[in-house]
Amino acid sequence: MMGIRSLTFRLKVQGFVAVAMMAAMLPPLAHAQDDEVVARVNGQEITAADLAIAEEMYGPQLGQMPEDARRSVLVNALIELRIVADAAREANVTEQDAFKRQLAFFEAQTLRSVFIEQRVADAVTDEAIRAAYDGQVGSFPTVAERKLRHILVGTEDEATDIINALEAGQSFADLAQERSIDAVSKAKGGDLGFVAEGEIMPEVEEAAAELEPGQFTRSPVATAFGFHVVMLEEARNRPPPAFETVEPQIRQALASAEEQRLLAGLRAAAQVEKLVPDVTPPQADDGHDH
């Protein structure tokens, strides 16, 4: 279990010091009377509202910690924060230039974050996401696909015997379960699901193209794996992805684009004088040759 000292160190590394500096400069926040008080430090209340902010900032670092332990660790961190902040005030840290410089930096950082978050949220609405989806669905390429079953055996004679059994009325799925050597599809009655062009062995694909739904190949189909008997169950154009499955990706893409648009507009309107050379950072080594 993560101890308070370990957590405090990690949170400081991740930005906890910024909150501590803010707390050192500002008096304790006033909260609504109905806020649950979770701790008191020198008579000052730490409330559920403070805990909610801590959870938002530090929660991801706590992983799958049980809820009661999570709450306890965060409250301990807030207690230590308040204790150190009080000590910093008494030591007049708020009057030091180093404090003021760092506080100004973190204030600008927070303003940037809140400003962009609010503007992006205003632009990336549910309606905008739906409109983007509707516009993209029409541009999806049409992909023809077939729902196939197959039975794979080791010899041509075995495949011919299976074709004769099918012509006599035996079930394709039953024969696949009994005789196919494809362990993956065998348990599903030979079902290969929907496959598009290029997603299956060319010999099988070519044979399936000659079939109508419900038909099976009347001669064995030879591949490097053996001999197949192939059945076409259904042919269709692949449907576009459902809105629910791509909504998070569309939201993220729109948010990223809006943030870049916003930043570009602000920078274009600002008077900027960069006094150091522009240098392109080296590309990170991802283990691939480029």
Rank of each mutant, 00 (worst) to 15 (best):
P141L: 13
Q61K: 11
E259G: 10
A104E: 02
R261V: 04
A77L: 13
L11N: 10
K188H: 05
A196D: 11
Q118K: 14
V73G: 05
G15H: 14
M231E: 14
R112T: 02
A132C: 04
F140N: 00
F225S: 07
L263I: 12
E56I: 08
R70L: 06
D122M: 06
A207M: 07
R5Y: 15
L51Y: 04
R40F: 02
V195K: 15
V229S: 08
L254E: 05
R10I: 04
P28C: 07
A264L: 08
F243C: 11
D289W: 13
I4T: 09
R218F: 04
S72E: 12
R71C: 08
R238E: 08
R82W: 15
L78E: 01
A209C: 13
V93C: 04
S256W: 03
L103P: 07
L51F: 02
I83K: 11
G198D: 01
V13Y: 07
E234P: 00
A209L: 11
F106T: 13
A196C: 09
A20L: 14
H288I: 04
R146F: 09
Q249V: 05
L78Q: 00
S139D: 15
E167H: 05
I162R: 06
S185L: 04
N164V: 12
I200E: 14
I163Q: 15
E197I: 07
V114M: 09
E95C: 00
L103S: 12
E145D: 10
K274A: 13
A88Y: 12
H228L: 10
L262W: 01
E156N: 01
L262A: 02
A224P: 01
M57E: 01
G154W: 00
S113L: 08
E145L: 14
A208T: 09
N237A: 15
A235P: 05
D86S: 09
R71W: 11
P141G: 08
G226T: 02
E67F: 09
I4K: 03
A209E: 15
R112L: 14
A284M: 10
M2D: 03
H31G: 00
G265F: 02
V93T: 07
E273H: 07
A49E: 07
E56G: 10
E167W: 05
G214P: 04
T94V: 11
L152S: 10
T217K: 05
Q283F: 15
V37D: 12
A123M: 06
Q118E: 13
L266I: 09
A168K: 11
E127V: 03
V195D: 06
A121C: 10
E55W: 04
H228D: 08
D289G: 12
A132M: 01
E197A: 14
P239W: 12
Q215N: 00
T155Q: 00
D174R: 10
